[in-house]
């Protein structure tokens, strides 16, 4: 009886371990498959011509993704600045300024934004934001600007909740010290609390960036998807994610491999963002 029990314990532990190992295996499979499918394209097209080429014409076997990289970086940067700063201001408001009851009402509403599916954001963007851009600035409306607006709204909740957590983690003594020295509440907030929460806030920016650069369906619907370098914020763009999603269904041969290589480039950006996030958090710990 006792031996049975011991055996059962061991079987259970092994079972639990295997499930945890499944997460490792899944990640390994994803990376290996994407890279293995993308590498042939890298050797046929050449990695540098692929990344720096400005012409994407699958029918003519011309595969350059510089316009897509530019579109992804510009839209992500724009959203991180616009959505990130509004989100940060919102977090300051919720954590430091707003009365508790009001903050308690605003918080769930902002969380609600996070729950809305990305395709709904895209749909709303196409129906409401795009025509507005045409009306105000002319052009087709499907543009870098439309992408930035939609992505800003999408990263807002992530930014607000992460930044607020970081701000709330700052010890009250910091604020009290500053106030006791005669600083106003606003000065304390900007000069003491915000710098003290720097690493967490920075991490919030980085993670929001990750969400923006990986967004696909919302972006496709409003971006215009023209594979050319944008010369103005009103030009249609095609980010990396859109490039994959738009053409995968009918691509074959080298064209398909080029799409996988696009995926690998996107993966590299994500890895870079994750490293930046780790550095942001570690930088904060070293500083205290």
């Amino acid at each position: 009886m006792k031996r049975m029990k011991k055996a059962l314990e061991r079987v259970a532990e092994t079972g639990f371990f295997l499930c945890a190992a499944a997460a490792v295996l899944a990640l390994a499979l994803i990376v290996v498959f994407l890279v293995a499918k993308g590498v042939p394209a890298a050797s046929k097209i050449g990695l540098w011509p692929f990344i720096s080429g400005t012409v994407w014409q699958p029918s003519a076997e011309k595969f350059g993704i510089a316009p897509m990289i530019a579109a992804s970086l510009l839209s992500t940067l724009g959203a991180a600045v616009a959505g990130g700063l509004i989100g940060l201001a919102c977090a300051l408001l919720l954590a430091e300024v707003a009365p508790r009851a009001l903050a308690g009402m605003m918080r769930p509403l902002i969380h609600l934004l996070a729950g809305i599916p990305s395709v709904v954001y895209g749909f709303f963007g196409l129906m409401a934001v795009v025509p507005l851009i045409t009306q105000w600035f002319g052009g087709t409306g499907n543009s870098l600007l439309a992408v930035i607006v939609i992505l800003s709204a999408m990263i807002l909740p992530t930014m607000v909740s992460l930044a607020e957590t970081a701000l709330r983690a700052v010890p009250a003594a910091y604020r009290e010290g500053s106030l006791a020295l005669g600083a106003t509440k606003m000065q304390t907030m900007l000069r003491v609390t915000l710098p003290a929460a720097k690493s967490g806030v920075l991490n919030a920016f980085v993670l929001s960036t990750g969400r923006a650069i990986g967004e696909t369906m919302a972006v496709i619907l409003v971006a215009g998807n023209r594979a050319a370098l944008p010369s103005s914020i009103l030009d249609p763009v095609r980010p990396l994610t859109a490039n994959i999603a738009l053409e995968l269904s009918y691509a074959s041969g080298l064209h398909e491999e080029a799409l996988y290589l696009t995926g690998v480039v996107l993966l590299l950006f994500i890895v870079g963002i994750n490293i930046a996030s780790h550095l942001a958090l570690r930088g904060g710990k070293g500083g205290r």
Binding site: A20, A21, A23, V24, A26, L27, A28, L29, I30, F33, L34, K37, G210, I213, G214, E215, T216, T241, I244, A245, L248, L259, Y260, G263, L266, L267, I270, I273, N274
Partner: peptide, 28 residues
């Protein structure tokens, strides 16, 4: 290592899951 993998999985964009699922489960 396990925790690193879990964190990384959380950061992968959904289109790459789609790409992987298409290659691995649908085709392979």
């Amino acid at each position: 290592a396990i925790r690193f993998c879990v964190e990384s999985l959380a950061g992968i964009p959904s289109i790459l899951y789609g790409l992987f699922g298409y290659t691995f489960f649908v085709m392979q």
